[in-house]
Design a protein around this nucleic acid. Structure first.
Lengths: 200, 200, 200, 200
DNA sequence: GATGAATGAGGCTTCATTCAT
DNA sequence: AATGAATGAAGCCTCATTCAT
């Protein structure tokens, strides 16, 4: 059935694309990895570019659903932000290969970066909505909501990627380490680093 | 004189590499941009790869010097961190082209990523040293120093890159906008986003 | 079918390589000569070098078979040597293009010469075995078998190549001329040039 | 003085050319080997081609003189042939690098081969003249003089080259081994390999 | 006379894409 | 639906040659 082959190809593609980046990834290698003939990829996707875009669309839906779902438990922005941070870290760790792809191509060649920045913007928007409500409800300090959201996104993604790709072999990051990273981020995002009394 | 040509080539190279990424950048275009013949590049650098590496080495020295210098004014970690944040934002804005290159290749193809992650680590180390002293002097909350440093680096770099490449034409970001970004970051890093009383 | 294209390419390759030598032969020209696209060669052979090596292997088998076969008629070393000389001259004349390639590259650039010398050694070995048996059976004068074999090989190959490439157009050497060359070689190899009585 | 530089360049050139063949030899390497700047070669020779031709002319004179000189001792063709064989083997061993160049280029690319074959022809002519007089004086068996001369030349050159380049390091071939090779060749050329009584 | 930085035409190789089966 | 042999445009790199000093 067609659906199967397509998913086979997607799975091979994320790995290869994430490993080498778009340009260095070869259709030959993706085909071999997927266990199909090169022609088969072209039967399902018009071009390398289109395969890539379809792949991103497919994977993006999942992460957005997941992030939105994790906020439905509660209406408290503080808790929602905490959930969000936890979920992002967890997702990025578990799908490091896709995460890396997302980030690297976003700052990659000008030809594809708009598409990716738009996608990243979608994720940041989810954060921003929480921040916005937090400020409205006077639970968060007033601030430039957009800047803050990007900063949080940056902090999370760079920290996690750094960890995920610290060692090429180690794909396994312990639950414990994940908690630790969430804590580090939370501490900074929630209370900052500077001990208040001393400020100024 | 040789030094001149080399710098000409470097300047052309940062732009082209940052615009298209390593793979899509063509030696032809770099040569044209630099106003030299293609062979001239190969007279000075053994390969595209080597040009790239030499370029990164050359540009990294400058930013490291700059960051180290901006901390020599004072011994107060709080002030040093502030200086660092200001300087990083300013530098990244002014050299967005190099900054983007650094970030994008760090998460790019495995072939070059180790080199780049090592370089990013050097920058993060500068932050980490300040954090470390801040904690030792009980000016900063105790925390995982390394994680915090990476988070700060991530927050700054993603925020700035997002701004710099928001619009391909606009290379000019106002002084005012820079201050605003520094403030956003500082606010988050110094006091966090959550109003303390409400926490938990 | 794949076998066909490969043989097409081989045939074009012997000619072009023999005409210009390895270095001056252009893949473009080989492709054009073979009536295939340049990429097709690279689909079947990893590189120019590999095409060359594969070609030599392919052609060497044929000549070795032929030489071995021509000795199976008889056990008389004198007759075997005569057959060998005849066959070598005939083969070299008919496949002058390959013969030339073999000889020229054997003394060509160090990079490939070992491979070729090893191949020539295989041919010389066939001669040497006959010489050896001839001496054992007291039909040939005792001598340094290896030296003698190389000398015979040198005499045959240089004489024939000289004839084949005397005139670039004339690819046709008459049966008669072939006999004559075989006779010249045989006379020298069998009885020497000096009239015995006069010797010293 | 100009003469010095020219000879320096010649010496570097024979080595490099003999090692890699004409095509793979780089002017850069010749210059470095000669201890002069690349431009200097072009000051003395119009092109790589011209350097090559000049080099061959220069070295050919020496060998022809030598061969002609070694026959002036005696009028006996048998002795002259013996001298010739000895001298050729000795020369080829001592100037293996030039010898190899001569042979390899003679069967090399069609572009230069005519020039080289003409040169080889000059050497063979020296042999042929001896053969001719030997036959006239009824000291040698009547035969195709030209074929016999080429065969002798082929036997000598292939045997010696094989020996010289048997091992890349060993440039030193003992006096003894030289005598042995001369003997092997002489035996074959003078009396042949087949014991007369048995012939047919 | 001598130098070596600069040049650019030319060659090898890669790889996305096509298409006949 | 699937295949994989064939294609050729495009890019990296080499290296003989030039020329200003």
């Amino acid at each position: 059935m067609s659906q199967e082959k397509t998913e086979q190809i997607f799975q091979a593609a994320v790995e290869i694309f994430a490993q080498h980046g778009f340009e260095r990834s070869k259709m030959d290698e993706i085909a071999r990895h997927a266990g199909v003939a090169k022609g088969t990829i072209y039967y399902h996707f018009k071009s390398k570019e289109e395969l890539f875009v379809a792949l991103m669309n497919n994977r993006m839906e999942k992460i957005k659903e997941m992030l939105n779902r994790c906020m439905s438990d509660t209406d408290d922005p503080v808790k929602q932000l905490r959930n969000l941070l936890e979920m992002m870290v967890t997702y990025l760790v578990q799908n490091g290969t896709f995460a890396k792809l997302l980030i690297s191509e976003a700052w990659g060649s000008v030809e594809r970066q708009w598409e990716f920045r738009a996608r990243i913007r979608e994720l940041v928007d989810i954060i921003e909505r929480v921040i916005h409500r937090g400020i409205s409800q006077e639970r968060f300090y007033p601030s430039n909501e957009s800047d803050t959201s990007f900063s949080i996104f940056g902090a999370v993604s760079v920290l996690v990627l750094q960890e995920v790709f610290r060692d090429p072999q180690t794909q396994s990051i312990s639950e414990e380490r994940i908690s630790q990273m969430v804590d580090s981020i939370e501490q900074m995002v929630y209370q900052g680093v500077v001990i208040s009394g001393y400020q100024e």
